[in-house]
């Protein structure tokens, strides 16, 4: 197949960027989207032109490195699929494909399609853990965890921190990411001691960098792991409770 790419090129952080057009003939439908970019880069390289910088690593949808805006959709047109698992057969022969980096103030572009997502790590630093120093753990079966709870925590924990939720959000909000991280731990019995402190810390850190949620639901559609916006509601509830809770009575619930 033959496609035409319109790709955002930007030399470095803060440098001006522009959409550039590349002709991409002889593309196989079996290729993944990133393999198509590999081929385009190979051709650019042989013409002595700088290849397009983009991030990718595991190419099986779990590391969260890849991610780009493809034709106005985060990770492209296939639902529940990261860019690396998107295949060219989802595009039509002769199609024009627009590729842009994630855009948000918190995700400055480093080069071409590569953005800096370290703000996510800052949110995790602010409380996205359970304090359990090495060696201090009780037996794993000491705490019973109902299957539904473990499953819900796992649903939240499936987040790969790719940033698609932020990129897809008209407000550049990171609610889906933060709520997934918060709820992974807040739903579990092990996470209860730090539950309210965690949600306060993480939401406050989030709001330093990102916008607010207006419940469009775009994030949920863009999420390659199909994480539900239900978690945003749970996070909101925990945040309000955290503001009011007398923490001295925490173990009386």
């Amino acid at each position: 197949m033959h496609v035409t790419l319109h790709v955002w090129r930007q030399a470095g952080p803060g440098a001006p960027g522009t959409m550039e057009t590349y002709d991409a003939p002889d593309i196989s439908e079996e290729m993944s989207f990133l393999e198509m970019l590999d081929v385009v880069n190979e051709r650019l390289n042989s013409q002595g032109r700088e290849p397009i910088a983009f991030e990718h690593d595991c190419r099986e949808g779990i590391c969260g490195s890849c991610g780009m805006m493809i034709n106005g959709q985060a990770h492209g047109p296939e639902r529940g699929t990261a860019t690396c698992q998107l295949h060219m057969r989802k595009f039509a022969d002769g199609e024009h494909i627009y590729i842009e980096p994630w855009r948000a103030k918190a995700f400055p572009v480093l080069r071409d399609l590569v953005v800096d997502r370290s703000a996510f790590d800052k949110i995790v630093e602010a409380g996205g853990y359970i304090t359990a120093p090495t060696g201090a753990a009780p037996d794993a079966n000491l705490t019973l965890i109902p299957k539904d709870v473990a499953d819900a925590a796992m649903d939240a924990a499936a987040c790969i921190a790719c940033g698609a939720c932020v990129a897809a959000c008209p407000n550049s909000a990171a609610q889906l990411f933060t709520s997934a991280k918060v709820n992974h731990l807040n739903l579990l019995p092990q996470g209860q001691s730090e539950r309210y402190q965690r949600v306060l810390g993480m939401v406050d850190a989030m709001e330093e960098f990102f916008g607010s949620c207006t419940n469009h639901g775009e994030c949920q559609e863009a999420c390659p792991k199909e994480i539900s916006i239900d978690f945003i509601a749970y996070m909101n509830r925990d945040y309000v409770r955290a503001q009011l809770k007398n923490r001295k009575l925490l173990s009386q619930d």
Binding site: N141, I145, P146, D151, A153, L185
Partner: peptide
């Protein structure tokens, strides 16, 4: 010890309906 440590860290290992690992 690894399993104990990781459960304490909040790793949502698969559970049976009774709540055990």
């Amino acid at each position: 010890d690894i399993i104990d440590q990781m459960v304490a860290q909040g790793v949502p290992f698969a559970r049976e309906y009774g709540g055990l690992l």
